[in-house]
Protein backbone atom coordinates (compact mmCIF):
# COMPACT_ATOMS: atom_id res chain seq x y z
CA UNK A 1 0.00 0.00 0.00
CA UNK A 2 2.88 2.34 0.85
CA UNK A 3 4.57 1.72 -2.52
CA UNK A 4 1.35 2.40 -4.39
CA UNK A 5 0.76 5.58 -2.41
CA UNK A 6 4.33 6.77 -3.02
CA UNK A 7 3.78 6.42 -6.75
CA UNK A 8 0.83 8.83 -6.69
CA UNK A 9 2.48 11.48 -4.50
CA UNK A 10 2.80 9.92 -1.04
CA UNK A 11 0.66 11.05 1.86
CA UNK A 12 -0.07 14.32 0.06
CA UNK A 13 -2.35 12.35 -2.25
CA UNK A 14 -4.63 11.37 0.65
CA UNK A 15 -6.95 14.43 0.46
CA UNK A 16 -7.31 13.86 -3.28
CA UNK A 17 -8.12 10.19 -2.75
CA UNK A 18 -10.64 11.16 -0.06
CA UNK A 19 -12.23 13.69 -2.42
CA UNK A 20 -12.48 11.13 -5.23
CA UNK A 21 -14.09 8.57 -2.91
CA UNK A 22 -16.51 11.20 -1.67
CA UNK A 23 -17.35 12.16 -5.26
CA UNK A 24 -18.29 8.56 -6.00
CA UNK A 25 -20.43 8.35 -2.85
CA UNK A 26 -22.17 11.73 -3.24
CA UNK A 27 -23.04 11.43 -6.90
CA UNK A 28 -23.92 15.09 -7.48
CA UNK A 29 -21.15 17.32 -8.83
CA UNK A 30 -22.57 20.59 -7.47
CA UNK A 31 -23.05 19.17 -3.97
CA UNK A 32 -19.57 17.69 -4.05
CA UNK A 33 -17.98 20.99 -5.10
CA UNK A 34 -19.84 22.87 -2.36
CA UNK A 35 -18.83 20.33 0.29
CA UNK A 36 -15.23 20.24 -0.91
CA UNK A 37 -14.97 24.04 -0.81
CA UNK A 38 -16.47 24.04 2.69
CA UNK A 39 -14.04 21.30 3.75
CA UNK A 40 -11.01 23.12 2.38
CA UNK A 41 -12.05 26.41 4.00
CA UNK A 42 -12.61 24.70 7.35
CA UNK A 43 -9.29 22.90 6.94
CA UNK A 44 -7.41 26.14 6.37
CA UNK A 45 -8.92 27.77 9.48
CA UNK A 46 -8.08 24.70 11.57
CA UNK A 47 -4.58 24.79 10.07
CA UNK A 48 -4.09 28.32 11.42
CA UNK A 49 -4.94 27.07 14.90
CA UNK A 50 -3.01 23.79 14.69
CA UNK A 51 0.27 24.86 13.09
CA UNK A 52 1.36 26.94 16.09
CA UNK A 53 0.51 24.19 18.56
CA UNK A 54 2.49 21.69 16.51
CA UNK A 55 5.60 23.89 16.34
CA UNK A 56 5.38 24.75 20.03
CA UNK A 57 5.41 21.07 20.89
CA UNK A 58 8.01 20.22 18.27
CA UNK A 59 10.52 22.84 19.35
CA UNK A 60 10.26 22.67 23.11
CA UNK A 61 8.24 19.53 23.90
CA UNK A 62 5.68 21.82 25.52
CA UNK A 63 2.14 20.50 25.69
CA UNK A 64 -0.02 23.61 25.71
CA UNK A 65 -3.58 22.67 26.56
CA UNK A 66 -4.31 26.38 26.92
CA UNK A 67 -3.87 26.93 23.18
CA UNK A 68 -7.63 27.08 22.67
CA UNK A 69 -7.84 30.16 24.92
CA UNK A 70 -6.09 32.11 22.14
CA UNK A 71 -8.61 30.77 19.62
CA UNK A 72 -11.54 31.87 21.82
CA UNK A 73 -10.12 35.29 22.63
CA UNK A 74 -9.30 35.81 18.94
CA UNK A 75 -12.90 35.04 18.03
CA UNK A 76 -14.43 37.32 20.66
CA UNK A 77 -12.04 40.22 20.04
CA UNK A 78 -12.72 40.01 16.31
CA UNK A 79 -16.47 39.94 17.00
CA UNK A 80 -16.20 43.04 19.20
CA UNK A 81 -14.11 44.93 16.63
CA UNK A 82 -16.54 43.98 13.86
CA UNK A 83 -19.48 45.11 16.00
CA UNK A 84 -17.77 48.43 16.71
CA UNK A 85 -17.11 48.94 13.01
CA UNK A 86 -20.66 47.96 12.01
CA UNK A 87 -21.07 51.02 9.80
CA UNK A 88 -17.97 50.11 7.76
CA UNK A 89 -19.17 46.53 7.39
CA UNK A 90 -22.55 47.52 6.06
CA UNK A 91 -21.17 50.20 3.74
CA UNK A 92 -21.34 49.75 -0.01
CA UNK A 93 -17.61 50.37 -0.31
CA UNK A 94 -15.66 47.11 -0.54
CA UNK A 95 -12.60 48.99 0.69
CA UNK A 96 -14.34 49.92 3.96
CA UNK A 97 -15.59 46.32 4.29
CA UNK A 98 -12.07 45.00 3.90
CA UNK A 99 -10.68 47.61 6.29
CA UNK A 100 -13.13 46.52 9.00
CA UNK A 101 -12.34 42.84 8.46
CA UNK A 102 -8.61 43.43 8.46
CA UNK A 103 -8.87 45.55 11.62
CA UNK A 104 -10.71 42.69 13.36
CA UNK A 105 -8.19 40.07 12.24
CA UNK A 106 -5.24 42.33 13.09
CA UNK A 107 -6.62 43.09 16.57
CA UNK A 108 -7.13 39.38 17.29
CA UNK A 109 -3.68 38.46 15.95
CA UNK A 110 -1.91 41.23 17.86
CA UNK A 111 -3.68 40.21 21.05
CA UNK A 112 -2.65 36.59 20.42
CA UNK A 113 1.01 37.57 20.04
CA UNK A 114 1.05 39.76 23.17
CA UNK A 115 -0.93 37.35 25.32
CA UNK A 116 1.27 34.54 23.99
CA UNK A 117 4.34 36.36 25.25
CA UNK A 118 2.83 36.78 28.73
CA UNK A 119 1.54 33.20 28.78
CA UNK A 120 4.95 31.80 27.87
CA UNK A 121 6.85 33.89 30.41
CA UNK A 122 4.46 33.39 33.34
CA UNK A 123 2.83 30.00 32.80
CA UNK A 124 5.02 27.89 30.52
CA UNK A 125 8.59 28.93 31.32
CA UNK A 126 8.57 27.58 34.89
CA UNK A 127 7.52 24.11 33.68
CA UNK A 128 9.84 23.42 30.72
CA UNK A 129 10.74 19.73 30.52
CA UNK A 130 7.93 18.64 32.87
CA UNK A 131 4.94 17.32 30.94
CA UNK A 132 2.69 16.61 33.89
CA UNK A 133 3.02 20.14 35.24
CA UNK A 134 2.61 21.55 31.73
CA UNK A 135 -0.72 19.77 31.34
CA UNK A 136 -1.92 20.82 34.79
CA UNK A 137 -0.90 24.46 34.60
CA UNK A 138 -1.98 25.07 31.00
CA UNK A 139 -5.36 23.43 31.70
CA UNK A 140 -5.67 25.63 34.78
CA UNK A 141 -4.86 28.68 32.69
CA UNK A 142 -7.47 27.59 30.17
CA UNK A 143 -10.15 27.48 32.88
CA UNK A 144 -9.16 30.97 34.05
CA UNK A 145 -9.25 32.23 30.45
CA UNK A 146 -12.72 30.76 29.89
CA UNK A 147 -14.03 32.42 33.02
CA UNK A 148 -12.52 35.69 31.81
CA UNK A 149 -14.40 35.27 28.54
CA UNK A 150 -17.65 34.78 30.48
CA UNK A 151 -16.90 37.78 32.68
CA UNK A 152 -16.15 40.08 29.72
CA UNK A 153 -18.59 38.92 27.05
CA UNK A 154 -21.19 37.00 29.08
CA UNK A 155 -22.57 33.54 28.45
CA UNK A 156 -25.10 34.28 25.75
CA UNK A 157 -24.12 33.58 22.13
CA UNK A 158 -22.84 36.62 20.26
CA UNK A 159 -23.77 37.28 16.65
CA UNK A 160 -20.82 38.12 14.44
CA UNK A 161 -21.39 40.57 11.64
CA UNK A 162 -19.96 39.65 8.24
CA UNK A 163 -18.73 42.28 5.80
CA UNK A 164 -21.20 42.94 3.03
CA UNK A 165 -18.86 41.79 0.26
CA UNK A 166 -18.37 38.39 1.87
CA UNK A 167 -22.05 37.63 2.47
CA UNK A 168 -23.84 35.44 0.02
CA UNK A 169 -22.43 32.94 -2.40
CA UNK A 170 -20.59 32.92 -5.65
CA UNK A 171 -22.56 30.93 -8.17
CA UNK A 172 -20.78 29.17 -11.02
CA UNK A 173 -23.24 27.14 -13.11
CA UNK A 174 -25.30 25.18 -10.59
CA UNK A 175 -22.55 25.31 -7.95
CA UNK A 176 -22.84 27.76 -5.05
CA UNK A 177 -19.79 28.51 -2.89
CA UNK A 178 -20.01 30.88 0.07
CA UNK A 179 -17.79 33.91 -0.53
CA UNK A 180 -16.50 33.75 3.05
CA UNK A 181 -15.19 30.23 2.48
CA UNK A 182 -13.17 31.36 -0.50
CA UNK A 183 -11.75 34.18 1.61
CA UNK A 184 -10.84 31.75 4.43
CA UNK A 185 -9.19 29.43 1.93
CA UNK A 186 -7.14 32.24 0.39
CA UNK A 187 -6.05 33.68 3.74
CA UNK A 188 -5.02 30.21 4.95
CA UNK A 189 -2.98 29.68 1.77
CA UNK A 190 -1.25 33.05 2.17
CA UNK A 191 -0.33 32.21 5.78
CA UNK A 192 0.91 28.76 4.77
CA UNK A 193 3.10 30.14 1.99
CA UNK A 194 4.43 32.81 4.39
CA UNK A 195 5.25 30.19 7.00
CA UNK A 196 6.81 27.91 4.43
CA UNK A 197 9.07 30.69 3.17
CA UNK A 198 9.96 31.82 6.70
CA UNK A 199 10.89 28.27 7.71
CA UNK A 200 12.74 27.32 4.54
CA UNK A 201 14.33 30.53 3.32
CA UNK A 202 15.45 32.33 6.49
CA UNK A 203 18.12 31.64 9.08
CA UNK A 204 15.60 31.78 11.92
CA UNK A 205 13.51 29.23 10.03
CA UNK A 206 16.58 27.02 9.67
CA UNK A 207 17.18 27.27 13.43
CA UNK A 208 13.55 26.38 14.17
CA UNK A 209 13.65 23.34 11.89
CA UNK A 210 16.94 22.22 13.42
CA UNK A 211 15.62 22.89 16.94
CA UNK A 212 12.55 20.72 16.35
CA UNK A 213 14.90 17.87 15.40
CA UNK A 214 17.53 18.23 18.08
CA UNK A 215 17.28 21.09 20.53
CA UNK A 216 20.43 20.15 22.42
CA UNK A 217 22.60 20.19 19.31
CA UNK A 218 21.36 23.63 18.28
CA UNK A 219 22.35 24.90 21.73
CA UNK A 220 25.73 23.20 21.39
CA UNK A 221 26.23 25.17 18.19
CA UNK A 222 25.81 28.38 20.16
CA UNK A 223 22.14 29.35 19.74
CA UNK A 224 19.67 30.21 22.52
CA UNK A 225 16.68 27.95 21.84
CA UNK A 226 14.71 29.51 24.72
CA UNK A 227 14.79 32.92 23.00
CA UNK A 228 13.78 31.37 19.71
CA UNK A 229 10.97 29.56 21.49
CA UNK A 230 9.39 32.78 22.80
CA UNK A 231 9.13 33.96 19.19
CA UNK A 232 7.60 30.69 18.07
CA UNK A 233 5.16 30.69 21.00
CA UNK A 234 4.05 34.26 20.19
CA UNK A 235 3.65 33.44 16.50
CA UNK A 236 1.75 30.23 17.31
CA UNK A 237 -0.59 32.05 19.69
CA UNK A 238 -1.12 34.85 17.16
CA UNK A 239 -2.02 32.31 14.48
CA UNK A 240 -4.46 30.59 16.86
CA UNK A 241 -6.14 33.95 17.52
CA UNK A 242 -6.24 34.64 13.78
CA UNK A 243 -7.85 31.25 13.24
CA UNK A 244 -10.37 32.09 16.00
CA UNK A 245 -11.17 35.42 14.32
CA UNK A 246 -11.76 33.68 11.00
CA UNK A 247 -13.84 31.01 12.68
CA UNK A 248 -16.03 33.67 14.34
CA UNK A 249 -16.91 35.10 10.94
CA UNK A 250 -17.52 31.63 9.57
CA UNK A 251 -19.85 30.52 12.35
CA UNK A 252 -21.57 33.91 12.65
CA UNK A 253 -22.74 32.95 16.17
CA UNK A 254 -20.14 32.28 18.86
CA UNK A 255 -20.18 31.07 22.47
CA UNK A 256 -17.39 30.83 25.06
CA UNK A 257 -17.33 27.04 24.47
CA UNK A 258 -15.98 27.58 20.96
CA UNK A 259 -12.33 27.16 21.88
CA UNK A 260 -12.89 23.88 23.70
CA UNK A 261 -14.99 22.44 20.90
CA UNK A 262 -12.34 23.32 18.34
CA UNK A 263 -9.48 22.11 20.47
CA UNK A 264 -10.45 18.48 20.08
CA UNK A 265 -10.28 18.89 16.32
CA UNK A 266 -7.01 20.84 16.56
CA UNK A 267 -5.38 18.09 18.62
CA UNK A 268 -6.64 15.46 16.17
CA UNK A 269 -5.09 17.47 13.31
CA UNK A 270 -1.75 17.83 15.08
CA UNK A 271 -1.65 14.12 15.89
CA UNK A 272 -2.68 13.05 12.37
CA UNK A 273 -0.16 15.40 10.77
CA UNK A 274 2.74 14.52 13.05
CA UNK A 275 4.02 16.74 15.85
CA UNK A 276 6.38 19.54 14.91
CA UNK A 277 5.58 19.54 11.22
CA UNK A 278 3.90 22.42 9.35
CA UNK A 279 3.28 20.35 6.22
CA UNK A 280 1.79 17.67 8.46
CA UNK A 281 -0.52 20.21 10.12
CA UNK A 282 -1.76 21.41 6.75
CA UNK A 283 -2.31 17.88 5.52
CA UNK A 284 -4.09 16.84 8.71
CA UNK A 285 -6.26 19.98 8.73
CA UNK A 286 -7.38 19.51 5.13
CA UNK A 287 -8.15 15.82 5.71
CA UNK A 288 -10.19 16.65 8.81
CA UNK A 289 -11.98 19.54 7.08
CA UNK A 290 -12.97 17.41 4.11
CA UNK A 291 -13.88 14.40 6.24
CA UNK A 292 -16.11 16.49 8.52
CA UNK A 293 -18.05 17.98 5.61
CA UNK A 294 -18.39 14.81 3.54
CA UNK A 295 -19.46 12.66 6.47
CA UNK A 296 -21.87 15.30 7.80
CA UNK A 297 -23.62 15.13 4.42
CA UNK A 298 -23.44 11.38 3.81
CA UNK A 299 -23.87 9.99 7.34
CA UNK A 300 -24.94 12.83 9.65
CA UNK A 301 -24.97 10.57 12.71
CA UNK A 302 -21.30 9.71 12.22
CA UNK A 303 -20.15 13.34 11.93
CA UNK A 304 -18.69 13.51 15.43
CA UNK A 305 -17.03 10.12 15.31
CA UNK A 306 -15.54 10.48 11.83
CA UNK A 307 -12.48 12.48 12.87
CA UNK A 308 -11.73 10.17 15.77
CA UNK A 309 -11.95 7.21 13.41
CA UNK A 310 -9.69 9.01 10.94
CA UNK A 311 -7.14 9.63 13.69
CA UNK A 312 -7.25 6.01 14.85
CA UNK A 313 -6.80 4.75 11.30
CA UNK A 314 -3.83 7.05 10.69
CA UNK A 315 -2.18 6.12 13.99
CA UNK A 316 -2.57 2.39 13.34
CA UNK A 317 -0.92 2.92 9.97
CA UNK A 318 1.65 5.57 10.95
CA UNK A 319 2.06 5.84 14.72
CA UNK A 320 3.96 9.16 14.48
CA UNK A 321 1.47 10.79 12.13
CA UNK A 322 1.50 11.28 8.38
CA UNK A 323 4.39 13.73 8.11
CA UNK A 324 6.22 13.90 11.43
CA UNK A 325 9.25 16.14 11.90
CA UNK A 326 12.49 14.16 11.95
CA UNK A 327 13.60 13.84 15.56
CA UNK A 328 17.31 13.64 16.24
Amino acid sequence: MNALLDRVGGVYALPVILAILAFAAIGSTSTWVTLTAAGLAMGMMIFLMASGLSLIFGLMDVLNFGHSAFVSFGAFIAASVLAALGAWLAADSVLLNIAALMAAIAAATAFGALAGWGFERVIVKPVYKDHLRQILITMGALIVAEQLLLAIWGGTPIAVARPAFLTGSIIIGDVAIEAYRIFALLLGLVVYVGMYLALNRTRIGLLIRAGVENREMVESLGFRIDRLFIGVFMAGSALAAMGGAMWAGYQSLITPALGQELMIIVFIVVIIGGLGSIQGSLLGAILVGLMTNYVAFLFPKLALASNMLLMMAVLLWRPYGLKPAVKG
Binding site: A210, M217, G328
Partner: peptide
Protein backbone atom coordinates in the same frame (compact mmCIF):
# COMPACT_ATOMS: atom_id res chain seq x y z
CA UNK B 1 28.29 13.91 20.37
CA UNK B 2 28.39 10.15 20.17
CA UNK B 3 25.15 10.10 18.12
CA UNK B 4 26.74 12.77 15.90
CA UNK B 5 23.83 15.20 16.32
CA UNK B 6 23.20 15.47 12.59
CA UNK B 7 19.98 17.22 11.56
CA UNK B 8 18.61 14.52 9.26
CA UNK B 9 15.77 16.64 7.92
CA UNK B 10 18.18 19.34 6.73
Amino acid sequence: PENMGIFGGL
